[in-house]
């Protein structure tokens, strides 16, 4: 009994953080989203008016479109690059530790810093395009970051560069759990290595992929620092994202009510995305029990 009480006592700080920090803030934000709060919180109730404004706001709708497109491209790129890296590192037994460090390194750096570097690299008058032209290719063009139709791709490239190593690390952990007998059997049967990976090994990594997917999804919804560091939402409003909309309205535009409505919409979206995973996991746990 005493041990249980001690364990429970140890959980109190965490429980308080969860209750006050997360749940409390969420409830407060939900409350703000149905008021006409501007610079300071107000209790002037306006019902769903902020949500109506939100969904008639072109920049918000554009931000949601951008987030969807970004999410699909970013997650695909990360899973693909992460798998390839994991397999390459997995084959390279000798230098494995080194390679893992190198590919994981981008994930350890703040995007405010690396984003600024990416901005220079991608800037047509300073970066890759300028280098290409200086080398004599006068028609060489790589100006996606200033092209409203392609700017999102540059954010996908930069953020996928950052997160791929992280996906690799998760998959590597999964790969180390694969039964070595499978490899021996495949060798005896003379199956090519790539085929073993695509048909036998990777399909066994379902949990590793699911973990990576959930973490990447939350990364997509949180996308903010990369946009601020690389494009500030531009050119124009072409790379605006929901988190930036919320932050801009929270402070600079002194519209606490509208910002809160945006935050609640984002939260509901995340919950809707995560619900299937949580449901599947509960069912899996139940079937084991």
């Amino acid at each position: 009994m005493r041990a249980t009480w001690a364990a429970r006592a140890a959980l109190v700080p965490v429980a308080l953080t969860a209750l006050l920090g997360y749940l409390g803030s969420t409830l407060w934000t939900a409350q703000m989203s149905v008021t006409a709060s501007r610079t300071l919180p107000s209790d002037h109730f306006v019902g769903m008016a902020q949500y109506v404004r939100l969904f008639s706001n072109e920049r918000w709708l554009l931000s949601l479109d951008n987030l969807l497109l970004y999410g699909v491209l970013f997650i695909s790129a990360c899973l693909l690059a992460g798998s390839v890296l994991a397999i390459l590192v997995d084959r390279e037994i000798a230098a494995r530790g080194w390679l893992r460090q190198i590919f994981l390194y981008p994930y350890a750096m703040s995007f405010i810093a690396t984003g600024a570097v990416w901005q220079w690299i991608l800037n047509p008058t300073d970066g890759i395009q300028a280098v290409g032209r200086a080398l004599g290719f006068s028609a060489f063009r790589f100006d996606w970051i200033v092209d409203p139709d392609r700017v999102l791709l540059t954010i996908v490239i930069a953020t996928a560069w950052q997160a791929s190593g992280f996906v690799m690390a998760i998959l590597l952990a999964g790969l180390s759990g694969v039964d070595p007998d499978l490899w021996r059997a495949a060798r005896i049967d003379g199956i090519p290595t790539w085929r073993v990976y695509t048909s036998i090994v990777l399909p066994q990594l379902g949990y590793a992929f699911a973990t990576a997917l959930v973490l990447l999804l939350t990364g997509v919804v949180k996308l903010y620092d990369a946009v601020v560091a690389m494009t500030q939402g531009g050119p124009g409003t072409a790379s605006e994202v929901p988190t930036k909309f919320i932050m801009d309205h929270l402070y600079g535009r002194a519209n606490l009510g509208l910002a809160s409505a945006g935050a609640i919409v984002l939260l509901v979206t995340v919950l809707a995305l995560l619900a299937p995973f949580l449901y599947a996991r509960t069912r899996a746990a139940a079937s084991i029990a």
């Binding site: 501007r38 706001n57 920049r59 600079g252 535009r253 002194a254 519209n255 509208l258």
Partner: peptide, 11 residues
Amino acid sequence: LTPDQAGAMAD
């Protein structure tokens, strides 16, 4: 303009 109107105009 309110900060919100000025921001929307800038957008």
